[in-house]
Computed example of a mutant assay.
Amino acid sequence: MSLNVAFRSQAETCTRMGSPFMGQLLSILAAHWPEDTALGQKFASFEGDIGPSGHSLPLRIAGGLHALVPSNAAPELAALYPPHQVSDDLLTKGVLDALSTHEDFLLEWTDSAPQTNEVRRSAALIAGAHVALQYFDLPIHLSELGASGGLNMMWDHYALEIEGGRFGSNVPAVLFTPDWDGAPPPNARPVIADRAGVDLNPLDPSRGDHLLRMTAYLWPDQPERLNMTRAAASVATTRPVQGDAIEWLGPRLASAPQGHLHLIQHTVAWQYFPAEAQARGRALIEAAGAQATPNRPLAWLSMETDGDTTGKVGAALTLRLWPGDITLELGRADFHGRWINWTYGS
């Protein structure tokens, strides 16, 4: 995939997911990318997949440009960003000026892959946990793989509200109201006894520079995502550790306590693990599942792309439970949690 194609493909995706500004910005970058600069040469040096399943170069530079706005480092650029609406010509000039003026910052920023912590995915986690508790009603020992800043480990501080009622905290820091299609999830009262997560590059939302990195990858014309992220950050009390997810998972599985449901969760993370790591992780979890008992059960809740391009682009919601090795296809969800097609119990 060429850089031009990557920019245009990402522009189409962002527009389809409700961000016309990102579509405009990335289309401008596709048409006017400065190839003869240090930034242009750096991007040209990347090998392999440069799209969203790989290095994700379009989102790296879009996030870097966005980071200049709330930090007031580029007031001229900020004047062109939402809530303002400007012509392609004005935005093109502002973006090219920013790429030149702030090249050193953008060179450093784009060293790392995009990293958000889409908290609206917790709507699916809340619903999935309610199903797990229908089978094993025990306090939860929670483990998250690819936890980023840990915001989705805090789903017991949030609530999901759909036509069938409210599920979650009575005083939620964040309230999710996705377009819900299907029966409501089962009633349950989740209690998270302890929680831990791991990430190759964990972020600490209590640090301003880390929170900036998380919010810079939120799309500028979607302020509701920014507000939810900041609200979730205010109650984030557990920091993920740095490490390889599968290496971390082994001891975590071995030390799961009696009298608790060990719930492993991940959202749009597993799909980025190398195939070998996925195989090792699956073997670890299945081996632990084979040793599970009713007083020490195991649940594996995932929200990952299913490659379905026939309908809405989204992720499959899957829950595996042990003992019994029960696999439940719960439904599908939008990558940003805007909608959930819930099939469990329907």
Rank of each mutant, 00 (worst) to 15 (best):
V5A: 14
A6V: 07
S9D: 15
T13G: 09
G18W: 03
S27A: 06
E35Q: 13
L39T: 03
G40Q: 02
P52Y: 14
S53M: 15
G54S: 10
L57M: 08
L59G: 02
V69H: 07
N72I: 00
L77D: 02
Q85F: 12
S87F: 07
L90F: 10
A98W: 04
T101Y: 05
D104I: 11
D104V: 15
F105K: 00
T110C: 14
T116L: 00
I126C: 02
V131T: 02
Q134G: 13
P139I: 12
L142V: 09
G146D: 00
G150A: 04
L151A: 06
Y158S: 01
I162K: 10
I162A: 10
V171G: 11
V174S: 01
T177Q: 15
P190W: 05
I192A: 05
R195I: 10
V198F: 04
V198K: 00
V198Q: 01
V198M: 03
S206M: 13
H210E: 08
T215D: 05
T215G: 01
A216C: 06
W219Y: 02
P220K: 06
R225C: 02
N227I: 13
T229E: 03
R230P: 01
A232G: 14
A232V: 02
S234H: 00
V235M: 04
V241P: 05
P251M: 06
L263W: 06
T267E: 07
T267V: 08
E276P: 05
A277N: 14
R280N: 11
G281M: 08
I285C: 07
P294S: 02
L298M: 01
S302V: 08
M303Y: 05
G307F: 06
T309I: 10
G311L: 03
A315C: 12
L317S: 06
D325Q: 11
E329N: 10
D334N: 15
F335H: 09
N341G: 09
W342E: 11
T343A: 13
